[in-house]
Amino acid sequence: MGAMTTTAAQEQSRPVVLLAVRPEVREMVLSDATLDRLAELGEVVGTDGREWDDVELPAGVRAIVTGWGTPEVSAELLERLPDLEIVAHTGGSVRGIVSREVWERGARVTTAAETNNRFVAEYTAAQVLLALKGAHHVVAHGRRNHALPRPIGAPGTLGQRIGLVSYGSIARHVRAVLRALDVEIWTWDPYVSDEDLARDDVRRAADLDELFRTCLVVSIHSPLIPGVTEGLVGADQLALLRPGATLVNTSRGAIIDEPALVALLQQRPDVCAVLDVTWPEPPVPESPLWELPNVQLTGHVAGAIGSEAVALGAAAVEELERHLTGEPLRHEVSATAAARRA
Protein backbone atom coordinates (compact mmCIF):
# COMPACT_ATOMS: atom_id res chain seq x y z
CA MET A 1 0.00 0.00 0.00
CA GLY A 2 1.36 3.42 -0.89
CA ALA A 3 2.09 6.15 1.63
CA MET A 4 -0.94 8.04 2.92
CA THR A 5 -1.27 11.50 1.42
CA THR A 6 -0.91 14.54 3.69
CA THR A 7 -4.55 15.48 3.23
CA ALA A 8 -5.75 11.97 4.10
CA ALA A 9 -3.52 11.87 7.17
CA GLN A 10 -4.86 15.22 8.33
CA GLU A 11 -8.44 14.05 7.86
CA GLN A 12 -7.75 10.90 9.83
CA SER A 13 -6.23 12.88 12.71
CA ARG A 14 -9.10 15.34 12.97
CA PRO A 15 -11.27 14.82 16.06
CA VAL A 16 -14.72 13.36 15.53
CA VAL A 17 -17.50 15.50 17.01
CA LEU A 18 -21.05 14.23 17.46
CA LEU A 19 -23.60 16.97 16.86
CA ALA A 20 -26.42 15.46 18.94
CA VAL A 21 -28.85 18.37 18.68
CA ARG A 22 -32.43 18.05 17.52
CA PRO A 23 -33.12 19.86 14.21
CA GLU A 24 -35.54 22.40 15.72
CA VAL A 25 -33.04 23.23 18.46
CA ARG A 26 -30.15 23.38 16.00
CA GLU A 27 -32.01 26.01 13.98
CA MET A 28 -32.41 28.09 17.13
CA VAL A 29 -28.94 27.93 18.66
CA LEU A 30 -26.45 27.19 15.88
CA SER A 31 -25.91 29.86 13.26
CA ASP A 32 -24.30 29.07 9.92
CA ALA A 33 -21.13 30.78 11.12
CA THR A 34 -21.03 28.62 14.25
CA LEU A 35 -21.63 25.44 12.25
CA ASP A 36 -18.81 26.44 9.90
CA ARG A 37 -16.51 26.97 12.87
CA LEU A 38 -17.48 23.57 14.26
CA ALA A 39 -16.66 21.95 10.92
CA GLU A 40 -13.21 23.55 11.05
CA LEU A 41 -12.57 21.97 14.43
CA GLY A 42 -13.23 18.38 13.44
CA GLU A 43 -15.23 15.84 11.51
CA VAL A 44 -18.83 16.56 12.47
CA VAL A 45 -21.29 13.66 12.56
CA GLY A 46 -24.91 14.67 13.06
CA THR A 47 -27.38 12.50 14.97
CA ASP A 48 -30.37 14.91 14.95
CA GLY A 49 -30.73 14.19 18.66
CA ARG A 50 -32.14 10.71 17.99
CA GLU A 51 -32.11 8.00 20.63
CA TRP A 52 -28.63 6.53 20.85
CA ASP A 53 -29.81 3.01 20.00
CA ASP A 54 -30.90 4.37 16.62
CA VAL A 55 -27.51 5.93 15.85
CA GLU A 56 -24.53 4.21 14.26
CA LEU A 57 -21.64 5.77 16.12
CA PRO A 58 -18.32 6.31 14.35
CA ALA A 59 -15.01 5.39 15.94
CA GLY A 60 -12.87 7.97 17.68
CA VAL A 61 -15.57 10.32 18.97
CA ARG A 62 -13.86 12.83 21.25
CA ALA A 63 -16.66 15.34 21.75
CA ILE A 64 -20.44 15.60 21.85
CA VAL A 65 -22.39 18.83 21.34
CA THR A 66 -25.78 18.54 23.04
CA GLY A 67 -28.92 20.65 23.30
CA TRP A 68 -32.39 20.69 24.80
CA GLY A 69 -33.94 17.25 24.41
CA THR A 70 -30.73 15.37 23.62
CA PRO A 71 -30.90 11.81 25.01
CA GLU A 72 -28.81 11.24 28.13
CA VAL A 73 -25.12 10.59 27.75
CA SER A 74 -25.40 7.47 29.88
CA ALA A 75 -23.06 4.79 31.16
CA GLU A 76 -24.25 2.53 28.35
CA LEU A 77 -23.42 5.15 25.74
CA LEU A 78 -19.99 5.71 27.25
CA GLU A 79 -19.18 2.05 26.63
CA ARG A 80 -19.64 2.81 22.93
CA LEU A 81 -17.54 5.99 23.12
CA PRO A 82 -14.24 5.02 24.75
CA ASP A 83 -12.46 8.13 23.44
CA LEU A 84 -14.98 10.72 24.67
CA GLU A 85 -13.27 13.71 26.28
CA ILE A 86 -15.89 16.45 26.52
CA VAL A 87 -19.62 17.20 26.38
CA ALA A 88 -20.38 20.77 25.28
CA HIS A 89 -23.99 21.68 26.05
CA THR A 90 -25.72 24.50 24.16
CA GLY A 91 -28.20 25.03 27.01
CA GLY A 92 -28.00 25.71 30.72
CA SER A 93 -28.76 22.79 33.02
CA VAL A 94 -27.43 19.35 32.03
CA ARG A 95 -29.85 17.42 34.23
CA GLY A 96 -31.16 14.47 32.29
CA ILE A 97 -28.51 14.97 29.61
CA VAL A 98 -25.19 14.24 31.33
CA SER A 99 -25.03 11.26 33.68
CA ARG A 100 -22.70 11.12 36.67
CA GLU A 101 -20.70 8.45 34.86
CA VAL A 102 -19.45 11.09 32.42
CA TRP A 103 -17.57 12.85 35.21
CA GLU A 104 -16.49 9.55 36.74
CA ARG A 105 -14.97 8.63 33.40
CA GLY A 106 -12.92 11.83 33.56
CA ALA A 107 -14.65 13.54 30.65
CA ARG A 108 -15.25 17.27 30.92
CA VAL A 109 -18.61 19.02 30.79
CA THR A 110 -19.23 22.61 29.78
CA THR A 111 -22.47 24.54 29.31
CA ALA A 112 -23.78 27.80 27.92
CA ALA A 113 -25.52 28.56 31.23
CA GLU A 114 -23.52 31.71 31.91
CA THR A 115 -24.49 33.11 28.52
CA ASN A 116 -28.15 32.28 29.11
CA ASN A 117 -28.02 33.72 32.62
CA ARG A 118 -27.31 37.16 31.23
CA PHE A 119 -30.59 37.16 29.32
CA VAL A 120 -32.58 35.86 32.31
CA ALA A 121 -31.08 38.66 34.39
CA GLU A 122 -32.07 41.29 31.84
CA TYR A 123 -35.66 40.03 31.89
CA THR A 124 -35.67 40.01 35.69
CA ALA A 125 -34.29 43.53 35.92
CA ALA A 126 -36.95 44.71 33.47
CA GLN A 127 -39.68 43.18 35.64
CA VAL A 128 -38.20 44.82 38.74
CA LEU A 129 -38.30 48.22 37.07
CA LEU A 130 -41.86 47.67 35.83
CA ALA A 131 -42.89 46.66 39.34
CA LEU A 132 -41.40 49.79 40.88
CA LYS A 133 -43.17 51.92 38.27
CA GLY A 134 -46.44 50.20 39.18
CA ALA A 135 -46.99 48.73 35.71
CA HIS A 136 -48.10 45.28 36.88
CA HIS A 137 -50.64 46.78 39.26
CA VAL A 138 -51.97 49.11 36.57
CA VAL A 139 -52.55 46.10 34.30
CA ALA A 140 -54.26 44.18 37.12
CA HIS A 141 -56.50 47.16 37.93
CA GLY A 142 -57.42 47.55 34.27
CA ARG A 143 -58.37 43.89 33.96
CA ARG A 144 -60.65 44.11 36.99
CA ASN A 145 -62.25 47.49 36.33
CA HIS A 146 -61.77 48.20 32.61
CA ALA A 147 -60.27 51.50 33.70
CA LEU A 148 -56.88 52.85 34.70
CA PRO A 149 -56.28 53.91 38.29
CA ARG A 150 -56.15 57.64 38.98
CA PRO A 151 -53.80 58.53 40.49
CA ILE A 152 -51.45 55.64 39.83
CA GLY A 153 -50.00 54.76 43.23
CA ALA A 154 -46.61 53.54 42.06
CA PRO A 155 -43.80 53.29 44.62
CA GLY A 156 -41.08 54.63 42.32
CA THR A 157 -37.50 53.42 42.22
CA LEU A 158 -35.59 55.57 44.68
CA GLY A 159 -34.41 53.74 47.77
CA GLN A 160 -36.63 50.69 47.32
CA ARG A 161 -35.61 47.26 48.60
CA ILE A 162 -35.26 44.44 46.08
CA GLY A 163 -34.94 40.89 47.42
CA LEU A 164 -33.14 38.07 45.61
CA VAL A 165 -33.77 34.53 46.84
CA SER A 166 -30.31 32.96 46.38
CA TYR A 167 -27.29 34.83 45.08
CA GLY A 168 -25.89 32.71 42.29
CA SER A 169 -24.90 33.61 38.75
CA ILE A 170 -28.26 35.00 37.58
CA ALA A 171 -28.76 37.05 40.74
CA ARG A 172 -25.27 38.52 40.34
CA HIS A 173 -26.12 39.53 36.78
CA VAL A 174 -29.38 41.07 38.04
CA ARG A 175 -27.43 43.06 40.58
CA ALA A 176 -25.07 44.30 37.84
CA VAL A 177 -27.96 45.45 35.61
CA LEU A 178 -29.70 47.19 38.50
CA ARG A 179 -26.62 49.22 39.44
CA ALA A 180 -28.06 52.01 37.31
CA LEU A 181 -30.97 52.33 39.78
CA ASP A 182 -30.86 53.85 43.24
CA VAL A 183 -32.19 50.73 44.97
CA GLU A 184 -31.09 48.51 47.84
CA ILE A 185 -30.35 44.90 46.90
CA TRP A 186 -30.92 42.28 49.58
CA THR A 187 -30.51 38.53 49.41
CA TRP A 188 -31.08 35.39 51.40
CA ASP A 189 -28.44 32.81 50.62
CA PRO A 190 -26.80 30.81 53.42
CA TYR A 191 -23.93 29.75 51.15
CA VAL A 192 -22.64 33.05 49.80
CA SER A 193 -19.79 34.73 51.69
CA ASP A 194 -19.96 38.11 53.39
CA GLU A 195 -16.99 39.16 51.26
CA ASP A 196 -18.84 38.44 48.02
CA LEU A 197 -21.88 40.39 49.19
CA ALA A 198 -19.79 43.33 50.34
CA ARG A 199 -17.98 43.43 47.01
CA ASP A 200 -21.31 43.66 45.16
CA ASP A 201 -22.90 46.04 47.68
CA VAL A 202 -25.60 43.50 48.53
CA ARG A 203 -27.11 43.21 52.01
CA ARG A 204 -27.86 39.92 53.70
CA ALA A 205 -31.30 39.17 55.13
CA ALA A 206 -31.25 37.22 58.38
CA ASP A 207 -33.66 34.67 56.95
CA LEU A 208 -36.14 34.14 54.14
CA ASP A 209 -38.95 35.62 56.21
CA GLU A 210 -37.11 38.92 56.56
CA LEU A 211 -36.58 39.11 52.81
CA PHE A 212 -40.30 38.65 52.11
CA ARG A 213 -41.35 40.98 54.91
CA THR A 214 -39.12 43.92 53.95
CA CYS A 215 -38.64 43.90 50.16
CA LEU A 216 -41.06 45.45 47.70
CA VAL A 217 -39.99 43.12 44.87
CA VAL A 218 -38.87 39.55 45.57
CA SER A 219 -37.25 37.56 42.76
CA ILE A 220 -36.65 33.80 42.94
CA HIS A 221 -33.23 32.55 41.81
CA SER A 222 -32.76 29.40 43.87
CA PRO A 223 -32.04 26.19 41.95
CA LEU A 224 -34.55 23.38 42.22
CA ILE A 225 -32.89 20.66 44.28
CA PRO A 226 -35.28 17.74 44.88
CA GLY A 227 -36.07 17.34 48.55
CA VAL A 228 -34.24 20.56 49.45
CA THR A 229 -35.71 23.59 47.69
CA GLU A 230 -39.05 22.16 46.55
CA GLY A 231 -41.69 24.33 48.21
CA LEU A 232 -38.98 26.55 49.67
CA VAL A 233 -41.34 29.52 49.40
CA GLY A 234 -44.50 28.53 51.22
CA ALA A 235 -47.63 30.09 52.66
CA ASP A 236 -45.76 31.54 55.65
CA GLN A 237 -43.35 33.52 53.47
CA LEU A 238 -46.00 34.58 50.96
CA ALA A 239 -48.20 35.95 53.75
CA LEU A 240 -45.36 38.31 54.71
CA LEU A 241 -45.27 40.12 51.35
CA ARG A 242 -45.60 43.86 51.73
CA PRO A 243 -48.69 45.72 50.49
CA GLY A 244 -48.21 46.34 46.77
CA ALA A 245 -45.39 43.79 46.49
CA THR A 246 -44.45 41.92 43.32
CA LEU A 247 -43.12 38.36 43.21
CA VAL A 248 -41.01 37.33 40.20
CA ASN A 249 -40.05 33.73 39.43
CA THR A 250 -37.66 32.85 36.60
CA SER A 251 -36.13 29.80 38.29
CA ARG A 252 -38.37 26.74 38.66
CA GLY A 253 -42.07 26.66 39.44
CA ALA A 254 -41.82 23.97 42.12
CA ILE A 255 -39.74 26.22 44.37
CA ILE A 256 -42.98 28.03 45.25
CA ASP A 257 -45.91 26.28 46.92
CA GLU A 258 -48.24 27.05 44.02
CA PRO A 259 -51.58 26.36 45.76
CA ALA A 260 -50.47 28.71 48.54
CA LEU A 261 -49.51 31.33 45.95
CA VAL A 262 -52.88 31.04 44.21
CA ALA A 263 -54.68 31.43 47.53
CA LEU A 264 -52.65 34.51 48.40
CA LEU A 265 -53.23 36.16 45.02
CA GLN A 266 -56.96 35.51 45.30
CA GLN A 267 -57.09 37.04 48.77
CA ARG A 268 -54.71 39.94 48.15
CA PRO A 269 -55.25 41.83 44.90
CA ASP A 270 -52.53 44.25 46.02
CA VAL A 271 -49.87 41.59 45.36
CA CYS A 272 -48.77 40.80 41.80
CA ALA A 273 -46.88 37.77 40.50
CA VAL A 274 -44.80 37.56 37.33
CA LEU A 275 -44.27 33.88 36.60
CA ASP A 276 -41.98 32.84 33.79
CA VAL A 277 -42.14 29.32 35.23
CA THR A 278 -44.90 27.32 36.95
CA TRP A 279 -45.51 23.83 38.29
CA PRO A 280 -46.84 22.01 36.43
CA GLU A 281 -45.73 23.70 33.26
CA PRO A 282 -47.83 25.01 31.68
CA PRO A 283 -50.52 25.31 34.35
CA VAL A 284 -53.43 22.90 33.99
CA PRO A 285 -56.32 24.41 31.99
CA GLU A 286 -58.46 24.89 35.11
CA SER A 287 -55.70 26.65 37.07
CA PRO A 288 -56.76 30.04 38.48
CA LEU A 289 -53.39 31.40 37.33
CA TRP A 290 -54.83 31.80 33.83
CA GLU A 291 -57.58 34.13 35.01
CA LEU A 292 -56.22 36.00 38.02
CA PRO A 293 -55.80 39.66 36.99
CA ASN A 294 -52.74 40.11 39.22
CA VAL A 295 -50.77 37.31 37.51
CA GLN A 296 -48.62 37.57 34.41
CA LEU A 297 -47.58 34.26 32.84
CA THR A 298 -44.73 34.68 30.37
CA GLY A 299 -43.90 31.04 29.58
CA HIS A 300 -40.10 30.82 29.55
CA VAL A 301 -39.28 33.98 27.63
CA ALA A 302 -36.72 35.02 30.25
CA GLY A 303 -33.97 32.83 28.80
CA ALA A 304 -32.34 33.24 25.42
CA ILE A 305 -34.86 33.52 22.58
CA GLY A 306 -34.72 34.66 18.97
CA SER A 307 -31.50 36.47 18.15
CA GLU A 308 -30.18 35.74 21.65
CA ALA A 309 -30.31 31.95 21.25
CA VAL A 310 -27.46 31.76 18.74
CA ALA A 311 -25.15 33.07 21.46
CA LEU A 312 -25.68 29.77 23.30
CA GLY A 313 -24.44 27.67 20.40
CA ALA A 314 -21.50 29.99 19.84
CA ALA A 315 -20.53 29.72 23.51
CA ALA A 316 -20.60 25.91 23.41
CA VAL A 317 -18.47 25.71 20.27
CA GLU A 318 -16.01 28.25 21.70
CA GLU A 319 -15.58 26.01 24.74
CA LEU A 320 -15.08 22.98 22.52
CA GLU A 321 -12.41 24.86 20.60
CA ARG A 322 -10.61 25.75 23.83
CA HIS A 323 -10.55 22.11 24.85
CA LEU A 324 -9.29 20.85 21.50
CA THR A 325 -6.56 23.50 21.37
CA GLY A 326 -5.44 23.00 24.96
CA GLU A 327 -6.78 26.29 26.29
CA PRO A 328 -8.46 26.53 29.73
CA LEU A 329 -12.23 26.15 29.71
CA ARG A 330 -14.22 29.14 30.95
CA HIS A 331 -17.48 27.42 31.81
CA GLU A 332 -16.60 23.90 32.94
CA VAL A 333 -19.18 22.32 35.26
CA SER A 334 -18.40 19.76 37.93
CA ALA A 335 -20.84 17.04 38.97
CA THR A 336 -21.41 18.83 42.27
CA ALA A 337 -22.12 22.17 40.60
CA ALA A 338 -24.44 20.55 38.06
CA ALA A 339 -26.53 19.03 40.86
CA ARG A 340 -27.01 22.48 42.40
CA ARG A 341 -28.14 24.20 39.22
CA ALA A 342 -31.75 24.83 38.31
Rank of each mutant, 00 (worst) to 15 (best):
A263M: 04
R213L: 12
V94P: 02
T6I: 15
L211E: 05
G168E: 00
V228D: 10
R340G: 14
T47G: 10
Q237M: 03
T90F: 02
T70S: 12
S166A: 13
C272I: 00
L289H: 09
P223M: 00
L238D: 09
V65H: 02
A205I: 05
E72N: 08
Q237K: 10
R144C: 09
E122K: 01
A125M: 00
L35C: 14
P285A: 10
S74T: 08
L78K: 03
Q160N: 08
G49R: 01
A198D: 15
V301S: 10
P269W: 02
G168H: 00
P269M: 01
K133A: 11
V109L: 01
A39C: 12
A335H: 09
A206K: 12
L240C: 10
V177I: 06
E43R: 14
V301R: 07
H137G: 00
I185D: 05
P155W: 02
V165T: 06
V165I: 06
G49S: 08
R144D: 11
L77R: 02
T246D: 03
L132K: 01
E122H: 05
Q266Y: 07
A113M: 05
L324F: 08
L181M: 12
T298A: 06
D32G: 15
V61H: 03
V248E: 03
P190T: 00
P328G: 11
V262F: 02
L241A: 07
L77T: 09
R268W: 01
V333Q: 02
V94F: 03
D54A: 12
Y191P: 15
V284F: 08
W186Y: 08
L164T: 11
E56S: 14
P282V: 04
T110D: 05
L297H: 12
P71I: 01
V120K: 00
A59V: 13
A8Y: 03
P259G: 05
A273R: 04
T115H: 04
A88D: 07
W103I: 08
T157L: 10
V295L: 07
M1R: 12
V192F: 05
E281H: 07
E104Q: 13
V120A: 03
M28W: 12
V17I: 15
D276P: 12
T298R: 03
F119C: 10
C215K: 00
A88H: 06
G253T: 04
V274W: 00
I152C: 11
R26E: 15
L41V: 11
D32K: 08
T187E: 00
A245S: 10
A245G: 11
P293F: 00
R80Y: 07
G49I: 05
G69Q: 04
G231S: 04
A8S: 13
G60V: 05
V102S: 03
A9D: 13
V277K: 02
A154R: 03
D257P: 07
R118P: 13
R50Q: 13
